[in-house]
Design a protein around this nucleic acid. Structure first.
Length: 571
DNA sequence: AAAAAAC
């Protein structure tokens, strides 16, 4: 009984506090938005359509990964395939979201929603749920909600691909709430006993955020919605407590631990959601996820995967998990939103990054800024350097910190007390800080997926955003790939970057070898012209080629780089 | 390709 109290009390209290905070933040940022929106009314209309056609017709910068799915959809005019053009959403009066092309592929695709009111007329959804939507500021369904919600409500499996900040969470929570039925605590019916919905996410912060969203939308209902943690997991050892839980939000490993301890029964789960699906299907997570999905053994469990990115290998695994799935794609897969203004900044080498960032922060900027680095130590030390350099309200968040420190950092972020947040991949996915207008990739992202998710922390819910990515000579091999992604989503990149050799033909240099931390050179480099940057990058790419031909040693590489850099400096 | 995150 005590355990039971701990469980429900924790949830309820947190709910109210969070709810108020979120509402405040939300109101402030929307009012700012309206002002901005007026000055640029056409935003969001141009880029989406233009870009699709540019690449569908095979422009000079076409990319295989983007063209393929679109072409397939056109070639195979099978009756079971349905293409929904943007026109279905065009009819709507006014949405804060930019219009995006939607394709829904699969057997008997349910008709999209016209509005949230449709939920009452078509699916008998309790009006209270719609009230909660309205109170939370959700007035018009987004593309993924319009298409995804009916699919889930009609009990179909779904693979949903929709850009960052386009309302995926609501798209899967709404159907869960609409079809969950009576709370387990007030029911003797076996079918509504115990956990009936499970949402898996890759980080605790994201699980936490999803949980808050749940509490907001489920207000007035007596469902027990549990954010799985060490404390809550242990309370579930009591079967009486366990049977009264309706929804669990968790990271995979926590679930695995509880399953193995025998403290968890997932045999009545009817809704299973993988958020950030491609991340969850990464080799390191896959086994854990499979163990959890395996434990969801009810014959009528419906599964859905959601992400803004879904590389081919992840999609294959996902589709294998789903039963007669419908695949919905909003916008272009693996592509950032056009309303994020993206740019690349050349910084020559690692030592040049800090002065560049300090210079940036010395000018007026839009806090909070999210700064992404590649490792935990780099996050800590950069944050420290910024503080020492006199930058105000610097925060740091990575998974090496204690849970308390992590929670505090998030809370400062939510309250707007953080101006510069230095972080790792832990924050790259799913986190929704409505105020974030700028993202800086201090360290070059390690994949297109990472890039798309990182910069997707801004430009959320129809707002504009700005993303800057630093690149060094060492980042050359992946520069063109990211440049193409930028181009594809409506931003521009310097011509000379697009003329770099193909990434596939370059071999990545061994890292950590040549670190020229010459402060004088660094200071000079920051102000260099494009022409010089171009020379340096091409020289770097030549060195890489030569090195792969020779299979060269460290010293040889060092010497040749030094020589070439000195040549350039001399001019 | 590679670090991060998951407990």
């Amino acid at each position: 009984m005590e355990a039971f109290h701990l469980l429900s009390r924790g949830g309820a209290q947190f709910d109210k506090k969070r709810f108020k905070k979120d509402v405040k933040l939300f109101n402030i940022s929307t009012s700012i938005d309206k002002g901005k929106g007026v000055t640029r009314p056409d935003d969001g209309e141009l880029p989406t359509e233009l870009d699709f056609f540019k690449y569908a017709q095979g422009g000079p910068t076409k990319r295989k990964g983007i063209r393929e799915p679109e072409q397939k959809a056109k070639k195979a005019k099978v009756s079971s395939e349905e293409e929904v053009s943007g026109t279905s959403t065009d009819a709507k009066p006014s949405t804060s979201m930019p219009r995006q092309r939607v394709t829904a592929k699969g057997n008997n695709v349910p008709a999209p929603l016209e509005s949230f009111q449709d939920l009452i007329t078509r699916y008998n959804v309790p009006p209270r749920l719609l009230d909660n939507l309205e109170h939370s500021g959700y007035l018009e369904p987004t593309g993924i909600q319009v298409h995804g919600v009916p699919i889930l409500l009609e009990g179909r499996d779904l693979a949903a691909i929709s850009p960052t900040g386009t309302g995926k969470t609501l798209a899967y929570l709404l159907p869960i709430f609409a079809s969950l039925g009576a709370p387990a605590s007030s029911s003797n019916d076996d079918t509504s006993r115990g956990v009936r919905a499970l949402v898996l996410a890759p980080t605790r912060e994201l699980a936490h955020q999803i949980h808050n969203e749940c509490l907001k939308l489920a207000q007035g209902r007596k469902w027990r919605i549990v954010l799985f943690s060490k404390a809550t997991a242990s309370t579930l050892a009591d079967k009486n407590v366990r049977d009264k839980v309706d929804i669990i939000i968790s990271t995979p490993l926590r679930m695995v631990a509880a399953l193995q301890a025998g403290n968890l029964d997932l045999s009545n789960v009817r809704h299973l959601i993988l958020d950030e699906a491609d991340r969850m299907l990464d080799p390191e997570f896959l086994e854990q996820v499979q163990e959890v999905t395996g434990a969801c053994c009810h014959s009528s469990v419906r599964k859905a995967v959601f992400s803004a990115t879904l590389p081919a290998n992840a999609e294959k695994i996902a589709m294998g998990m789903l039963d007669d799935p419908i695949r919905v794609v909003v916008g272009l897969k693996d592509t950032p939103l056009p309303l994020i203004a993206q740019s690349l900044t050349y910084v020559a080498d690692d030592a040049s990054k800090l002065p560049t960032l300090l210079q940036y922060l010395a000018q007026p900027y839009n806090p909070p800024v999210l700064v992404f680095v590649s490792t935990q130590p780099r996050a800590s030390s950069l944050a420290e350097e910024l503080v020492l350099s006199g930058v105000q309200n610097v925060d740091c968040l990575h998974a090496g910190m204690s849970m308390k420190e992590r929670e505090d950092a998030i809370s400062r972020m939510r309250k707007g007390e953080s101006w510069v947040m230095v972080t790792t991949e832990v924050m790259a996915r799913g986190m929704d800080f409505k105020g974030v207008r700028e993202v800086i990739n201090y360290d070059f992202p390690q994949s297109v997926q990472s890039y798309v998710h990182r910069i997707g922390r801004t430009g959320r819910a129809g707002r504009e955003g700005k993303a800057v990515t630093y690149f060094t000579n060492e980042d050359g091999p992946f520069l063109k790939t990211i440049a193409n992604v930028i181009l594809q989503s409506g931003s521009t990149v310097p011509d000379w970057i697009l003329k770099l050799p193909k990434p596939s033909k370059m071999k990545r240099r061994d890292m950590g070898k040549v670190k020229r931390a010459d402060a004088v050179n660094n200071a000079r480099r920051i102000g260099r012209s494009d022409a010089i940057k171009k020379r340096e990058m091409i020289a770097a790419s030549k060195r890489r080629k030569q090195k792969t031909r020779e299979g060269g040693s460290n010293e040889a590489d060092h010497a040749s780089q030094k020589g070439e850099l000195e040549d350039i400096d001399a001019q």
